[in-house]
Amino acid sequence: MKKTSATDQEELGYLFNVEILVKEQTNAKALQKLLQLLNSSDDIIDYRINSGIELGAIISSMLASKKQSLINKSYKRINEGASNPAPSETKDTKTPHAPKEQPESPQQNSFVSMAKSQYFENWVQKYIANNSLVRLLVNRNGKRISIPCRILNFLADTYTMTVYHVDEKQVYSFHLSEIIDLNE
Score class of each variant (00 low, 15 high):
Phe111Ala: 09
Ser88Pro: 06
Ser60Leu: 05
Thr90Val: 10
Lys116Ser: 04
Lys73Gly: 14
Lys67Val: 02
Ile78Glu: 15
Gln68His: 08
Gly81Met: 10
Ile71Lys: 13
Pro96Leu: 01
Leu137Phe: 03
Val134Lys: 14
Asn141Lys: 09
Ala129Lys: 03
Arg135Gln: 12
Gly56Tyr: 11
Asn109Leu: 04
Lys73Arg: 14
Asn72Lys: 14
Thr93Asn: 06
Glu121Met: 03
Asn130Trp: 01
Asn130Ile: 00
Gly56Leu: 00
Glu104Asn: 06
Ser83Ala: 12
Glu101Met: 13
Ser60Thr: 01
Pro87Gln: 10
Gln68Leu: 07
Ala86Lys: 06
Ser132Thr: 09
Lys100Asp: 15
Ile145Glu: 15
Lys116Trp: 03
Ser65Gly: 04
Val134Cys: 14
Gln68Cys: 03
Pro87Ala: 11
Ser60Gln: 12
Ala115Asp: 07
Glu89Ser: 01
Arg135Phe: 11
Val138Arg: 00
Asn122Tyr: 02
Pro106Ser: 00
Glu89Arg: 00
Glu101Phe: 14
Ala115Asn: 04
Asn139Phe: 06
Ile147Gln: 07
Ile71Ser: 14
Val134Glu: 03
Ala86Gly: 10
Pro96Asp: 12
Ile59Cys: 12
Gly142Asn: 07
Asn131Pro: 01
Ser132Cys: 03
Glu80Lys: 01
His97Trp: 13
Ser117Cys: 06
Lys143Ile: 00
Tyr127Met: 04
Ile71Tyr: 12
Ser117Glu: 13
Asn79Arg: 10
Ile147Gly: 10
Ser88Tyr: 04
Ser113Gln: 07
Asn79Phe: 03
Ser132Glu: 10
Gln107Lys: 05
Met114Asn: 13
Ser113His: 10
Ala57Ser: 14
Leu136Trp: 05
Ile58Ala: 15
Ala86Pro: 05
Gln102Lys: 14
Glu80Gln: 10
Lys94Tyr: 15
Gly56Ala: 03
Ser146Asp: 11
Lys66Met: 07
Glu80Ala: 10
Ser65Lys: 07
Asn141Met: 02
Ala98Lys: 03
Glu121Trp: 01
Ala98Gln: 11
Phe120Ser: 02
Arg140Lys: 08
Glu80Gly: 08
Ile78Trp: 11
Arg77Met: 15
Ser132Val: 00
Asn141Pro: 00
Lys116His: 11
Ser60Ala: 15
Ala64Gly: 04
Asn141Val: 05
Ser83Val: 08
Asn131Arg: 01
Pro99Trp: 04
Gln118Tyr: 02
Ser105Ala: 05
Ser74Met: 04
Ser110Leu: 10
Pro96His: 02
Lys116Gly: 10
Lys67Ser: 03
Thr95Gln: 13
Asn141Ala: 13
Asn84Pro: 09
Thr93Ile: 12
Leu133Phe: 09
Tyr75Asp: 15
Gln125Lys: 10
Ser83Glu: 13
Ile59Ser: 15
Asn131Trp: 00
Ser117Ala: 09
Lys66Gly: 06
Leu63Phe: 09
